[in-house]
């Protein structure tokens, strides 16, 4: 491998991605970071105000509500989504008739634009016109304020997020399962390992990297949830169901407080990165413990 890894070859392999990424992602982030230190309303000239926007976040109750909602959604989604999508990948890998068609169908929700996902679930969760309460009414149960009330909205957003992501996560797990060395699997079943033992002792440990990929993707995706909230409740009542990005959108584009909005965006980016790094550190710590 060494002789193939000359310095200019490495540079040539990485440069296109690194240049495009730096120009269209990193440079814009730094640009917006600069704006987060200004008071900028969108139409007049920006005015430098140092850390004032970040300080103001501390006393902005809606920001804290949005943060709290995001954390609830993060915990509920990750705890439920990662194991269930893995289980689903295992299930749809078995030799059942039409497994391929089932996989395509399960992936269906992941294809729908988030804004439409939100719209579909409005017709399911809305306390008055939604499917769920119509069904409850048939059984004579009293209606539940699934969305738009004081408490349930973030949990419902988690459910919708899980629904729209499960096919996505399942596909990655499925690809990971396909890369497992079959001879090891065959050998272990010849050795008389039960399916459960094989799963726990062989499959899952060998899938560590895949679990990492799915978890990090889902963490960073939760931090980007916007359209679901926008369609389901518009962030209401009175910003009680905002997530960080939906609140950032409100501040930036509805309130036209561009500088303040960018400060929130910077915080969202840092939190997303911190959560991912935190997970990686956790996973690594565990690995070393085992080793």
């Amino acid at each position: 491998m060494t002789w193939i890894s000359s310095r200019w070859k490495i540079a040539l392999m990485i440069a296109p991605a690194a240049i495009l990424f730096s120009l269209f992602v990193i440079y814009p982030v730094l640009y917006s970071l600069g704006y987060s230190f200004t008071k900028f309303q969108g139409f007049s000239a920006p005015e430098f105000i140092g850390f004032d926007n970040y300080v103001a976040l501390g006393s902005d109750p809606f920001f804290w509500i949005a943060l709290q909602n995001t954390v609830i959604i993060l915990v509920v989604s990750i705890v439920l989504l990662v194991p269930s999508s893995f289980a689903l990948a295992l299930l749809l890998r078995t030799a059942i008739r039409g497994a391929g068609a089932l996989r395509a169908l399960v992936f269906g929700p992941a294809i729908i634009a988030p804004i439409l996902v939100g719209l579909i679930w409005v017709f399911i969760l809305d306390p008055k016109i939604g499917l769920l309460n119509r069904l409850l009414a048939i059984f004579g149960a009293s209606p539940v304020q699934w969305i738009g009330g004081d408490t349930l909205t973030p949990y419902m957003i988690s459910i919708v997020f899980i629904w729209s992501s499960i096919g996505f996560a399942m596909t990655i797990f499925y690809a990971g399962l396909q890369l497992l060395p079959q001879d090891v699997m065959e050998a272990s079943s010849l050795d008389g390992a039960s399916s459960w033992q094989q799963l726990r002792l062989i499959t899952i440990p060998m899938m560590k990297e895949t679990f990492g990929i799915v978890t990090i993707l889902m963490i960073t995706n939760v931090f980007k949830i916007f359209e679901l909230v926008y369609m389901l409740t518009g962030g209401g009542p009175v910003h009680r169901s905002e997530t960080l990005v939906s609140y950032m959108y409100f501040v930036t584009f509805t309130n036209q407080q561009y500088g303040y909005g960018m400060a929130i965006a910077v915080i969202v980016t840092l939190l997303g990165a911190a959560a991912s790094i935190g997970y990686l550190a956790l996973a690594r710590g565990k690995k070393e413990q085992e080793a």
Binding site: Q41, V238, T254
Partner: peptide, 21 residues
């Protein structure tokens, strides 16, 4: 009034209507 104040005004009215404030 400015846009943020106008939005706060809307929120204040709906806040009472929705029994949030």
């Amino acid at each position: 009034v400015s846009t943020p104040v106008a939005n706060a005004m809307y929120d204040s009215i709906y806040g009472v209507i929705q029994n949030q404030l």
